[in-house]
Structure formats: structure tokens, C-alpha cells
Design a protein around this nucleic acid. Structure first.
Lengths: 197, 197
DNA sequence: ATGCCTATACCGTCCAGTCGGACGGTATTC
DNA sequence: GAATACCGTCCGACTGGACGGTATAGGCAT
């Protein structure tokens, strides 16, 4: 059965299985045996791809980072002017319709790291510092940018922990308000908001 | 050493030790043995007060809830008019100077529950629903209320996970903006904020 | 002496990580 | 173009330790 060169695909499926496991059973149930069973491998097979459990979780975190980075880049293309990064950040977290995006992988990686070994968050922390810097230099009031960022994170947190989950309609309105804020915070220019998002 | 009637105090110290342990070592290191060592008891001693580890964490969560509830009530006294609850919520999370309040116990309880057994969050979830309801009925635009809540949560999250921790000065300004929002969102009445809610 | 509190010793389970090896492609050699 | 050596992939049994929980006995205050 082992096919040469199938390593990357298997590795990918292990990562997905681990994320799904965290999402359905909780971070405490993330054991190598459980992942192995879910992905249809033996524990030895898992450990061939990830030498240690920590390295598995580290890979999940890398997954989080790269995926979010991709989303950011994608959403940056439709934006320009002051507050463009803040809006991209917002859209990378929330649909215009209020749906959370990338919930599964992102939350799974972070939850697993928090539960098992929070030091594994280090790569994410580094990236986050970059993003925060870009938010500060986004051409709008840094306090607005930080407000928007924290609101996006707070909505995500509420969803992951199932705390205070608002209705889609309300979240949609919150999203709109936040987008609005990123425009209001712009330095007093002609306020030409001619083109759409 | 065992003193009659010292049960409550011991129980309290166990809870504190558990919280401190989570804060310093991470949720994964929250074991009965570790708590016992930290508090200067044996594991048997711990288990006398908390029959099971889950019940210990459940008590930590109750701690979170009751403490936050107390903070809310305290901060409600200085507020009135539309948005008063939103402001109280905000102040219960953040100092006017931008410092996070109640970080240790609250974060410890929640982190432990997430790591060990997320079902233990249930009591918190119930309370949180109440709070969200009160925010919706706070006399201001519900979207603003929800925005403020999520921003407060997001700031808390960033601090706990050490993600994107902003400077005190910036947080202070974010706090001010959020308070401002709770006033702006008031329905277009004579702006007579004379009487209470 | 009674009841609350704590210690010691112990058990069973779970789980990360190790180890030797199996199986099947792939490259090499002739 | 076979025979052979090699490597990537994966398996399965095992181990050592950590950890939650139990049972039991002892101590201090009233």
C-alpha cells in the first residue's frame, strides 16, 4: 500500500484529521491513537510524518498562519487607500454575511496548542506582531485599527467557545459597522468613498 | 495542622493555586499532583475538597462567573442611561487605563476548561447568554453593543494568548473609543440621559 | 469520642514515543 | 531487461511513565 511520493498527501490528511478531531471531540481528545484511527493509519504511520506530537501541532499552527496569510493577501487585492489592511483583516475573519471563515483549521490549531503546549503558538505570535504593525501603519487612527482587530478576534472567540454567539443578521451589522469605522478613521481627506469594496 | 472550619479557606487556596499553575505553566500542566504540591497538600487533600478534577475546574469556572458578575454589578452603579450595561461590561474587562482586570482567574478557568473538558464551560455559556441579552436591550444599537462586547473579548484574548498585545497607551485609546461608541449608539432622543435605564 | 480534614499507599488506564521489520516502488548494475 | 540494492512509507507490539481516582488510616479541634 505505501506508495512512494504519497507522503505529502498523507501528511495533509493527517493534519485534516487532527483538526477535525479537535473540532468534534475537543483538544483534550487529540491523541496520536485517535488521529491514527481517524485517518486510517497506525500510530507508527503518524509518527513517521510527525516525529512527535508537538511537531504535529506545530504543523497545525503553520497551517493556520499560511492559510490566514493567503486570505489576507487575497482580500488585500480588492482594497486600497487608508484602512485597506484593516478591512482585509476583517474580511479574512468574517464574511460580509457575518459567517466566520476558516474556523475549523484555525481554531483547531490554536486550541490544540493552547491545550497541549502554548509555546507552540510562537510562530503565530510572530506573524501576529507583523499584522499588528501593519494595522498601526494602515493610514487610519491606530486605535480604530486595534479596535477592529480585537472585535474580529472577539467574534471568533465567541464562536469557538460558543460564548455569546450572535445571530448572523446581527453579526452582519457588526461587520458593516466595523468596515464603516475603517473609513471614518481615515485622515481628513475628501472622504471620497466612490468605489465599492 | 488541620483546623476545624478551615475547609473554605483551604478550598479557596486550592482554587488559587490551580489558577496560578495554569497561568505560569499552562493548562496542560494542571494536574492534581501539581496543584497539591503547589498548595502544600497531598493529592488526597485536594480530592477531599474536589471529588474529581472536573469538579475542580467547574469550581474555577464558577469563580470566573461570580467574580465577573460582581464586577459588572459594581460598575453598573456608576452608569445610567442607554448603553449603561455595555459600559459596565467594558469596564469590567478593561481599566480606563487600558489594563486588563481579573485576567488571572478568569483566563485560568477558561483555559483549563477548554483544555481539559470544554463542556465545563456550560455555566459560563448560560451567563454569557444573559449578558448578551442585556446588551441587546441596553437602549443602544444592538450592533454597537455586540461590537463593544466582542472588542473587549478580543482584547482579553490577545492578552491571554499573547497575540497582538497592544501597548497600554493604545489600549487606553481603544477603550475610550469604545466608551464613545456606547454613547453614539443611543437612540435619537432628546439626549436626556437624566434617568436610569 | 465524634466529625472534619489530610496523608500514604496503591491501582488501572491512558498515552507518547521506540523499535524492528514488512512491503512496494525506484534506481543501479550487469 | 532481469536481478539487486536501496529508500520511502507504514505497521504493530512494546515500554515507561504520568495521571486520575480509591482505600484506608491518622490527627486535630471541639
Amino acid at each position: 500500500m505505501p506508495v512512494r511520493g504519497s507522503g505529502q498527501a498523507t501528511r495533509r490528511s493527517v493534519l485534516d484529521a487532527a483538526a477535525a478531531l479537535v473540532a468534534t471531540e475537543g483538544a483534550a481528545k487529540l491523541t496520536l491513537d485517535a488521529v491514527a484511527e481517524r485517518v486510517g493509519l497506525s500510530k507508527g504511520g503518524i509518527l513517521h510524518h510527525f516525529a512527535t506530537k508537538d511537531s504535529l501541532i506545530a504543523a497545525m499552527i503553520e497551517d493556520v498562519v499560511s492559510q490566514f496569510e493567503g486570505d489576507l493577501a487575497r482580500h488585500m487585492q480588492g482594497e486600497n487607500g487608508p484602512g485597506s489592511f484593516a478591512r482585509a483583516f476583517l474580511r479574512a475573519c468574517l464574511d460580509p454575511d457575518g459567517a466566520l471563515t476558516r474556523t475549523l483549521r484555525v481554531s483547531a490549531g490554536i486550541l490544540a496548542a493552547v491545550a497541549i503546549n502554548s509555546q507552540l503558538l510562537a510562530p503565530l505570535r510572530r506573524r501576529y506582531d507583523d499584522w499588528r504593525q501593519r494595522l498601526e501603519d494602515d493610514g487610519i487612527d491606530p486605535a480604530i485599527a486595534e479596535l477592529v482587530r480585537s472585535a474580529a478576534d472577539g467574534l471568533w472567540l465567541g464562536n469557538v467557545l460558543e460564548l455569546g454567539v450572535a445571530s448572523m443578521a446581527l453579526r452582519k451589522r457588526v461587520f458593516a459597522k466595523l468596515i464603516e469605522l475603517t473609513h471614518l478613521g481615515a485622515p481628513s481627506r475628501p472622504a471620497g468613498e466612490s468605489q465599492a469594496l
